[in-house]
Nucleic acid binder design. Structure first.
Lengths: 170, 170
DNA sequence: AATATTTATATCGTACACGATTTAATCGTG
DNA sequence: CACGATTAAATCGTGTACGATATAAATATT
């Protein structure tokens, strides 16, 4: 809690903590699948960053654009359903994309509760430039198409099962 | 950029955007491995949250404790190397864990630049309580040990290759 | 038709994550 | 010994995530 300013203190007794205690230990970091996924996700972020910052995009912003390239003119809730995000995350993110000129946000006149998110010309145009990015990332992974597809299926299966565990009761 | 206040506007012409344009399209969300990983990571976070909040821990805080259970009395940089994080992320996180009473942060008298992070009694004690958490999460994934191990190896391979691509030149 | 309920976004507070910079301690070399 | 270079944390600013709450529009109910 303290800022830990660097002043000379009386030496602290070394207090040797038990390095190894017993047989049944808590899991180690390198055995945890969740940690491997956590780190791989970060690694992907790092790979994407330089590729995307040429277009002044972040990784989640790129995912929003991918969603809109697939189908344009969607509500915030619809985007959220596709991305697994809610308005608390999407609203500021969409405002930034609007500020960057990639999309527009307009209330739906037929239902003023909804916001229609639409790509601008600039938003559609970078689809071409961004097309190679995913391949670029795939290359960085150094996996063949078969391995990639295999991993994709496995990850989606795991994701769906985990989601099933949180949505309602198993 | 505007707060989009809900006032009745003149109807916007529907402007039908091209639903499908051509053959060579940008990748779709459900074809992107990075997105599957991104979502699986979020799903894991959601699974861990209720299990961890009994101990007033977040998921990254739990990972720090796992690291310390493996080996106690480490510097911030050492923890960062294990977790793939730097002091800008770790320092505030460690301060919160200190505030929660799970660890102490003291300058290393032998080298005042370093901060020694050590578990408290409370920090060691929850190792026992937390032991089942990872199993609990594995259960939620619904995969057998063989599949888990397989996925773990694949993810670590992918992570390492991605890291190799960013650390220096390929 | 007036009111209660539901729905769609937005806002707020907290906690990562990370690039860039700062500060303090140590090390290396003259 | 001094002084520049290096190293280890900390700080700062921006951008996600997400629980909780607020707000306004639409729908359902009485």
């Amino acid at each position: 809690m303290t800022p830990l300013t660097r002043t000379k203190w009386p030496a602290v007794t070394s207090n040797a903590s038990p390095e190894i205690s017993a047989a049944a230990r808590a899991p180690r970091l390198d055995e945890l699948l969740c940690f491997a996924i956590y780190q791989t996700n970060h690694a992907l972020n790092r790979i994407y960053k330089p590729l995307l910052q040429d277009h002044a995009l972040t990784y989640p912003q790129y995912l929003v654009l991918v969603t809109l390239w697939e189908r344009d003119d969607r509500s915030v809730g619809d985007l959220g359903a596709a991305l697994g995000l809610e308005s608390n995350t999407l609203t500021p993110l969409l405002k930034r994309l609007e500020g960057s000129g990639y999309l527009t946000r307009t209330r739906n006149p037929a239902d003023e509760r909804q916001v229609r998110v639409r790509l601008t010309e600039a938003g559609r145009r970078i689809e071409d430039k961004a097309r190679g990015i995913a391949d670029c990332v795939a290359d960085a992974g150094g996996l063949g198409r078969a391995e990639l597809d295999d991993l994709l299926v496995q990850m989606k299966t795991l994701r769906d099962r985990l989601d099933a565990g949180t949505a309602t009761s198993p």
